[in-house]
Every structure is written in C-alpha cells, then in structure tokens.
Lab assay of single mutants.
Amino acid sequence: TEVDLHLGDITIKLKDVSEEIVKRAKELFKNGWSAEFVKKWIEEAVK
C-alpha cells in the first residue's frame, strides 16, 4: 500500500509502511520534529 504523509508543506510518499509507523511519524512531526527528521526516522523504522 502507498500512503502520502503530509508534513507541513512537505509530502512524503510511503510504500509498505504500517499504520503504526504513519501514526508515530505524525506524532513526531506534531511534537516539533522537522519533516526531514521524520523522513529519516521512517526510513530507519522500515529497515
């Protein structure tokens, strides 16, 4: 499945990412993480 994760003005296309990771990524962004950091976190999380 593909998900578009909207973080501010940046959209990250996610492939084969669990709902849990998407939820967590949104929380991290809301908590002040930059979109770049969230993207890196996701990449690490799906390895």
Rank of each mutant, 00 (worst) to 15 (best):
T1W: 13
T1A: 10
T1M: 14
T1Y: 13
T1F: 10
T1S: 13
T1G: 13
T1I: 13
E2I: 14
E2V: 13
E2K: 08
E2H: 11
E2D: 13
E2P: 08
E2M: 13
E2T: 15
V3R: 08
V3F: 14
V3P: 05
V3M: 14
V3N: 09
V3E: 11
V3K: 08
D4H: 15
D4A: 13
D4M: 10
D4W: 06
L5E: 03
L5C: 05
L5K: 02
L5P: 02
L5V: 09
L5I: 10
L5S: 02
L5T: 02
L5Q: 03
H6G: 04
H6M: 12
H6K: 13
H6F: 07
H6S: 09
H6L: 13
H6R: 11
L7E: 02
L7M: 09
L7Y: 05
L7K: 01
L7Q: 01
G8S: 04
G8T: 03
G8E: 04
D9Y: 04
D9M: 11
D9P: 10
D9A: 11
D9S: 10
D9N: 14
D9T: 10
D9H: 15
D9Q: 08
I10S: 05
I10Y: 11
I10V: 12
I10A: 07
I10G: 03
I10H: 08
T11A: 07
T11F: 06
T11K: 07
T11L: 09
T11D: 04
T11R: 09
T11Q: 08
I12P: 02
I12C: 05
I12G: 03
I12E: 04
I12F: 01
I12V: 10
I12W: 00
I12T: 03
K13L: 11
K13Y: 05
K13T: 13
K13V: 13
K13D: 07
K13I: 12
K13M: 11
K13C: 10
K13P: 09
L14D: 02
L14Y: 05
L14I: 11
L14P: 01
K15V: 15
K15P: 05
K15H: 13
K15Y: 13
K15I: 14
K15A: 09
K15F: 13
K15G: 09
K15S: 11
K15Q: 10
K15L: 10
K15D: 06
D16E: 10
D16S: 07
D16L: 04
D16M: 05
D16W: 08
D16I: 04
D16G: 15
D16F: 06
D16A: 07
V17A: 06
V17Q: 02
V17T: 05
V17F: 05
V17D: 01
V17P: 04
V17L: 07
S18W: 10
S18Q: 08
S18R: 07
S18K: 09
E19W: 09
E19M: 12
E19Y: 08
E20Q: 09
E20H: 12
E20S: 11
E20G: 09
E20T: 10
E20D: 14
I21T: 05
I21P: 00
I21A: 02
I21Q: 03
I21W: 03
I21N: 01
I21R: 01
I21C: 06
V22S: 04
V22Q: 07
V22D: 01
V22A: 08
V22N: 02
V22W: 06
V22R: 07
K23C: 10
K23A: 15
K23H: 11
K23V: 12
K23E: 14
K23R: 12
K23F: 08
R24Q: 15
R24C: 10
R24D: 05
R24M: 13
R24Y: 10
R24S: 07
A25D: 00
A25L: 05
A25H: 00
A25G: 03
A25V: 04
K26Y: 13
K26A: 11
K26E: 13
K26W: 11
K26G: 07
K26L: 15
K26V: 14
E27P: 00
E27C: 06
L28Y: 07
L28G: 04
L28Q: 02
L28V: 01
L28N: 02
F29E: 01
F29M: 06
F29D: 01
F29I: 09
F29T: 02
F29K: 01
F29S: 03
F29R: 02
F29H: 06
F29V: 06
K30L: 14
K30A: 15
K30S: 09
K30G: 10
K30P: 01
K30T: 13
K30F: 07
K30H: 10
N31P: 01
N31Q: 14
N31K: 09
N31D: 13
N31Y: 07
N31L: 12
G32N: 03
W33F: 14
W33K: 12
W33Q: 10
W33H: 15
S34D: 15
S34W: 05
S34C: 07
S34K: 06
S34I: 07
S34Y: 04
S34H: 06
S34V: 05
S34A: 10
S34G: 10
A35E: 08
A35K: 05
E36R: 02
E36H: 04
E36M: 04
E36T: 03
E36K: 03
E36G: 06
E36A: 08
E36Y: 03
E36Q: 07
E36S: 07
F37I: 13
F37E: 14
F37V: 13
F37M: 15
F37P: 01
F37A: 15
F37W: 14
F37D: 15
V38W: 01
V38Q: 00
V38P: 00
V38N: 00
V38I: 14
V38F: 01
V38T: 03
V38M: 02
V38A: 01
K39A: 14
K39L: 15
K39Y: 10
K39G: 09
K39S: 11
K40T: 12
K40L: 14
K40H: 13
K40R: 11
W41Q: 00
W41S: 00
W41D: 00
W41G: 00
W41P: 00
I42Y: 02
I42M: 05
I42G: 00
E43M: 08
E43Q: 07
E43T: 06
E43D: 10
E43G: 04
E43H: 04
E44V: 09
E44I: 11
E44G: 07
E44Q: 11
A45P: 00
A45V: 12
A45S: 08
A45G: 03
A45I: 14
V46C: 06
V46Q: 12
V46W: 06
V46M: 15
V46F: 08
V46L: 15
V46E: 04
K47T: 12
K47C: 09
K47H: 11
K47L: 12
K47F: 04
